[in-house]
Design a protein around this nucleic acid. Structure first.
Lengths: 127, 127
DNA sequence: TTCTATTTTTAGAATCATTCTAAAAATTCT
DNA sequence: AGAATTTTTAGAATGATTCTAAAAATAGAA
């Protein structure tokens, strides 16, 4: 692990908001002002390959990076806000239904966040 | 609905293999040889926006399009093969755990397909 | 039908996240 | 130290997708 990969790993582990490569790059530049974007991409790739970080792929957005710890994702259908929830592990249940083992699963749920719910409520009253 | 959107919708509904925009474009050209890529993208976007088709976003691949009918996805970790499975609807269960309603969910599971399992087995015997 | 408005298609340029390339620098191994 | 490997760098390249502005098609109203 180099100073860059260590730092990038730290940034991801300690951020609760699923940063993009660009955001990580910006933050890393505060510490190492000469670092280059490719270094961030290289390290993210290596960390992900090594199974040290998760990649969260959302439509129409640059990839986001996330800590490994088991958890699921909630995405607001309106504003796209991404948040974490930890539901009970479904692995057993899924394997039982499939009748075979799985390696992992990725569960994303869409909902309407409080802010967007409030907005929608307001609109309804306006009209 | 225009001839193009109708046809594109048909292609997606009748294909079991989650086609990319490019693949749909190639197939559409067999019927309408002068059609242009942008038309495929435009129509895919409209169909998706209208909730008539699903978009399957996988890492490092162009987006794939899928029929709407409720089902989940299995992805081979090795070769990337994508297949459909229909497990019991988890909505109730998820909502109960979350304590709030959700709009939809997207469940992707990774596994090792038969082919890749066989390959891995063979390698193990070779070494 | 004829005029007008809206939607769709087209061609090609533009975008933008990400990957690639090849050289330089840093690190590790012997 | 010297050689080999890994990482970083700068910048070009890639490639899926979106955008733009004009042309064509379609739908609606008179």
């Amino acid at each position: 692990m180099t100073k860059y990969s260590k730092q990038i790993f730290q940034i991801i582990e300690h951020s609760r908001d699923h940063m993009t490569a660009e955001e990580i790059f910006q933050q890393l530049r505060n510490i190492y002002p000469t670092v280059v974007r490719a270094t961030v991409y290289n390290n993210l790739h290596r960390l992900w390959e090594a199974g040290s970080i998760r990649k969260v792929v959302l439509e129409g957005q640059p990839d986001r990076y996330d800590r490994m710890e088991r958890h699921d994702h909630l995405i607001c259908k309106q504003c796209g806000k991404l948040s974490d929830v930890t539901l009970t592990d479904l692995t057993q249940q899924l394997e039982a239904q499939l009748g075979m083992p799985i390696l992992s699963y990725d569960l994303k749920m869409t909902y309407l966040c409080e802010t967007c719910q409030a907005k929608q409520e307001a609109e309804r009253n306006d009209v």
